[in-house]
């Protein structure tokens, strides 16, 4: 996918990567193992995350949907881009 290519080519540092994925569909995994899939609205230095159209997956099963969601950064294990 062209989008994914752009991300990997332009990303040099973790911060550059994070900047480059704003507005893109992502999966955020928390330390608890819960996944959040949605559009990354923005994030800050604590890795606090604002997401849109967020779906919460527990053990791979859809458990909840949130229009907007704020995730506190200390819970974040990783942020991953996904093909939409």
């Amino acid at each position: 996918m062209a989008d994914a290519g752009d991300v990997s080519q332009s990303a040099r540092t973790p911060a550059d990567f994070l900047k480059s994925i704003k507005g893109k569909p992502v999966v955020v995994k928390l330390n608890s193992g819960v996944d959040y899939r949605g559009i990354l609205a923005c994030l800050d230095g604590y890795m606090n995350i604002a997401m849109e159209s967020t779906e919460e997956y527990v053990n791979g099963q859809l458990k909840n949907k949130y229009g907007d969601a704020f995730i506190r950064g200390n819970n974040v294990l990783y942020i991953s881009t996904v093909k939409n």
């Binding site: 928390l30 608890s32 959040y36 967020t54 949907k65 949130y66 229009g67 907007d68 969601a69 704020f70 995730i71 506190r72 200390n74 819970n75």
Partner: peptide, 14 residues
């Protein structure tokens, strides 16, 4: 206390 917070969301608008 903030350290217990995982996620905050405005009310569900489904």
């Amino acid at each position: 206390r903030g350290d217990g917070v995982i996620l905050v969301s405005p009310p569900l608008r489904q």
